[in-house]
């Protein structure tokens, strides 16, 4: 395990990622940001031939909403790999998502005010 912010040499994990993704380029964060909330859509059937990582995502996401980053964190997958597998599931109609797709300039007053109020309620 690497310490946050530190570099680690490439390990067998690197090769593992390659196998999971089939060597495909990883998608950009435009569609699924780190904080986009996702869950499994109701009444879906696990795709035939789903690999162990897709199965694990399927089971995890069946329980409720989590952010893309949390899915990666809980399953010990690199963010890019988790995003690729989630993008596949989303394109196949298996995923629901919350939180609007991120905009380049995110200056939404209503959200900022909610964040401010929420933080203020933390301090006594």
């Amino acid at each position: 395990m690497t310490t946050p912010g530190e570099e680690a040499p490439v390990t067998s994990d690197f090769v593992r990622s390659y196998v999971i993704t089939g060597g495909r380029d990883l998608p950009s964060s435009e569609e699924l940001a780190l904080h986009t909330l996702v869950t499994l859509a109701p009444g879906r059937t696990l795709p035939l031939g789903a690999g162990p990582e897709v199965k694990a995502i399927w089971e995890l996401c069946a329980g409720g909403y989590l952010s893309v980053a949390e899915v990666a964190g809980h399953l010990g997958l690199p963010v890019g790999v988790a995003r690729l597998l989630l993008t596949d599931l989303s394109e196949q109609g298996h995923l629901l998502r919350r939180a609007e797709p991120p905009r380049a300039q995110n200056v939404d007053r209503a959200t900022l005010e909610k964040v401010l109020n929420g933080l203020q309620s933390l301090i006594g």
Partner: peptide, 10 residues
């Protein structure tokens, strides 16, 4: 070719 760990909370 490196990886970087990032951490996050909610």
């Amino acid at each position: 070719t490196t990886t970087v760990a990032l951490d996050f909370g909610r």
